[in-house]
Amino acid sequence: MDSLLSILIQAHPLEGWFFGSGKAMVVLAIALILLIGFGLWMWRAESRLKSMEAKLKSKNQQES
């Protein structure tokens, strides 16, 4: 793996540096955190919408 990366650095400096220096892992970690954060945000948004729907429904039933 190390030899492969050193070759990559020679052939394509930018990509080789990106994958060789561990920066790819940092980007991956940030991407994963963003993805999971987005998923949790959506989950929370949906559950809050659901509870608001339920509240509104019960309120309308009480009135009628």
Partner: peptide, 12 residues
């Protein structure tokens, strides 16, 4: 998608 991200950044 998390699995895909891991693949994208780690597979040589």
């Amino acid at each position: 998608i998390a699995y895909v991200f891991v693949m994208v950044f780690t597979v040589p």
